[in-house]
Design a protein around this nucleic acid. Structure first.
Lengths: 340, 340
DNA sequence: CTGAAAGCGCTTACAG
DNA sequence: CTGAAAGCGCTTACAG
C-alpha cells in the first residue's frame, strides 16, 4: 500500500504539502492541490486512519454497549444510534455483552485502549469496579435505557418505566379488570423492578390485590419465559382476567400458552405488553402494548454524545421519554355481569 | 491518561523495558517484570491500541458487512461471526449497508483506511467498481452467504440455494401437490434467482406448470411483501394448493394474508419457507421450512478468515453448506380425491 | 505557499 | 538483561 511518502516522492514535494493538500488546508496553492489529488488517484493512495488517529487524538469511532443484539428491542435502538453517527462520519462499534459482567468490563477496557471518542452504554452490572472504570474514563459517556448511577456525572436517556407501567395497569382497570396478574423480568433488572412497582402501586391505589398469587417473575425476558410464566400465573390464580407482561416477548409467550390452552384472548383474558416490537403487530398476536420509542431514544442518545464530543466540558441534561399506549386486539372490557 | 513514558519515568527504567515487560518478552528479568506490572497498576496505565496497531500493522479488528441487521437471519449470522472472533481477542465492526451500493463501497474504504485485519462480506452489488476495490485490497476477504465473483480469489461460505429449493419443491410434490406457486425475492438477488431456478427446474422435471400464473416476485423480502405477494398469487391462480416462499418472512406474510382470508393452512393450502427463523416456530405460524444453519455458516466463515489472517498466502476452499428440511405444521398431503 | 523537524505512543533490531 | 535510536504513517507549529 502506498503511503504519504510515496505520493510526496512521486510529485517531488514534501509530505507536509501532501498532507495539507489532502486536508484542504487554506494556504496551499490550488494547482498543487490538484496535482496532489491526481497523484493520490494514480497511486491509489489511502490515508492511514490509525496514524491519523494517533496524532489527532480522534478516532471517529464510538462504542455502543448492548445487552443482547438478538433482542429486537435493542437491535432497533442500535440502528438509530448507528444511523445518526454514520451520517457524521463516525464508525460505531457494537459491544454485545449478553448481560455478562465480564464482557461489560472488557468492553470498557477495549474502548479505552482503542481510543474511542465516546460511549453509549446499557450496562446490567453497576458494581463498584464498573463505576470506578466509568469514573476513570476520560471519554464522554451516555447511558441509554439505563439511569446514571449516583456519583457519576453522565446524562442518560430512558423511558419512565414506572409511569408507563402505571398507565398500562390503569388501562386494564378502566376496562373493568380487577384480578390483574403481572409477569415480570428478573428481579435483577432495574427496568423490570420499575415496571413491577408501577403495577403494584397502581393496584394498591385502586384497592386491588397484588400479592404473590398475581405476580410471577419469569426469570428471563424471552418468549419461552413468557410461556412458562403464564402457565405458572394461571396455576396460582385461575381467576385472573388480565395480565400485564413486563415486555412484549413475555407477552407473546403468554399469548402462546393461552392459545395452546384454548383460552381465548381477549374474550377470556386480556394481555398487555411493553415495547411495541414489530412482532406485536402480527395478525395472530395483535398485542396491545406500551411503546418505547426506540428510534427517538437512540437518536437522542447519539445527539447528546455528539454534543459532548464537540464540547468536552458540557454535560447535557438527561432525557426521560414518555411511553405511549398502543391499543390493538389483546385487551377487552370485562363483562361485569359475568365476573364474580 | 498515562502513557508508556510515564511508567518508565516512574520506575526509572527505559520505555523499551516497560514495553518488553508488558509484552512478556522472554529476556527481561522476572523482578523487573513485576515492578513494571506494579507501576502499570499504580498509574492505571492502558497501552494505546492505536499506537500499537500502527507499528505492528495489526489492529485486531475485522469488518463484517451485513445487508440488513434488522433481518433476523443476518443478525444470527453476525452473532456467530462475532462470537468466534471475540474469543480470539478481535473486535468485529459491523457495516450495515441496507443494500445500498454506496454504503457497501464506503465500508470497504473504511476497512482500508482503518487497517482492518480482514473482512467478511455479504455485498449485494458486485459491479466493476466494487470488484476492483476488492481486488485492490491487500487484506483477506471471505464472502458469506454469497459466491465469490469470477476473477476474484477469495473463499466463500454459502448454502446451496438451488439444491435446497429443489428439495423444498420435491417435498411438496411428494405430498401430492401439483399446482405449486412461488413467492420470490427481487430479481436482483442472486439467492432469490437460485431458489427460483430450483423451483422451476423441479417443476419442469415433474411435468408441472410453472409460468407467470404461479410465480410472483414480491419486490422485497419482508412480511409485508409476503402478504401482498400471496394476495397477488391467489388472484392469478386460485387453484394453487401449495406455495414455496423464497424466505420465511415472505412465508409468514403469506400465512398472514391467508389467515385474514380465512383460508386454512395447511388444510386448504400448504406453505413452505426458507431460513428457519425463530419466528417460524411461533404457535400460530409453525412454518415448515428449509433451514439455513446460521451458526454453522457464521462460524465457518470466521474460521476461514482467521486462517487467512494467520497465513497470508493461503486461500482456503469455499464451503457449500446443505440446507435441511424442517417439518412443522404448514404443509399437508393433498387429498387426491378432492383435487381435480 | 512550501519544507524540515518534532512528535503522537508504541515496538524492536542493535549494541552493550 | 537493559537502553538509545529508529521507525510505523501521519500532522502541524516554525521558519523561510
Amino acid at each position: 500500500m502506498a503511503n504519504i511518502k510515496d505520493v510526496a516522492k512521486h510529485l517531488g514535494v514534501s509530505v507536509s504539502t501532501v498532507s495539507r493538500a489532502m486536508n484542504n488546508h487554506p494556504d496551499v496553492r490550488e494547482e498543487t492541490k490538484l496535482q496532489v489529488m491526481e497523484a493520490i488517484r494514480a497511486l491509489n493512495y489511502r490515508p492511514n486512519a490509525i496514524a491519523r488517529g494517533l496524532i489527532n487524538k480522534k478516532t471517529y469511532t464510538i462504542g455502543l454497549m448492548i445487552p443482547e443484539i438478538s433482542d429486537p428491542f435493542f437491535a432497533g435502538l442500535a440502528n438509530a444510534v448507528e444511523e445518526t453517527f454514520s451520517k457524521q462520519g463516525y464508525q460505531v462499534v457494537y459491544g454485545n455483552t449478553n448481560r455478562d459482567p465480564v464482557k461489560e468490563k472488557q468492553f470498557l477496557s477495549n474502548a479505552i485502549e482503542r481510543q474511542f471518542d465516546g460511549l453509549i452504554i446499557t450496562p446490567d452490572f453497576l458494581d463498584d469496579t464498573f463505576k470506578e472504570l466509568i469514573s476513570g474514563l476520560d471519554m464522554p459517556v451516555v447511558f441509554l435505557r439505563r439511569r446514571t448511577p449516583p456519583g457519576i456525572s453522565a446524562p442518560y436517556v430512558d423511558v419512565d418505566h414506572y409511569e408507563a407501567a402505571t398507565e398500562a395497569v390503569k388501562y386494564l382497570i378502566e376496562l373493568g379488570h380487577r384480578q390483574i396478574g403481572f409477569i415480570g423480568m428478573p428481579e435483577s433488572s432495574f427496568t423490570g423492578i420499575q415496571r413491577l412497582l408501577g403495577y403494584r402501586d397502581t393496584m394498591w391505589k385502586h384497592g386491588l390485590l397484588s400479592d404473590d398469587s398475581n405476580i410471577v417473575m419469569s426469570g428471563g425476558r424471552n418468549i419461552d419465559c413468557g410461556r412458562r410464566a403464564m402457565s405458572k400465573l394461571y396455576e396460582r390464580n385461575p381467576n385472573v382476567t388480565a395480565v400485564f407482561a413486563g415486555n412484549d416477548l413475555l407477552g407473546i409467550g403468554a399469548l402462546e400458552w393461552l392459545a395452546q390452552q384454548k383460552i381465548v384472548v381477549p374474550d377470556q383474558i386480556s394481555v398487555i405488553g411493553f415495547d411495541n416490537l414489530e412482532y406485536a403487530e402480527l395478525h395472530w398476536i395483535q398485542l396491545t402494548t406500551m411503546e418505547q420509542p426506540r428510534a427517538e431514544m437512540g437518536t437522542k442518545a447519539a445527539d447528546l454524545l455528539l454534543q459532548m464530543i464537540s464540547d468536552k466540558e458540557m454535560t447535557p441534561e438527561s432525557e426521560l421519554i414518555k411511553a405511549r399506549l398502543i391499543v390493538r386486539q389483546s385487551c377487552k372490557a370485562l363483562q361485569t355481569t359475568l365476573s364474580i
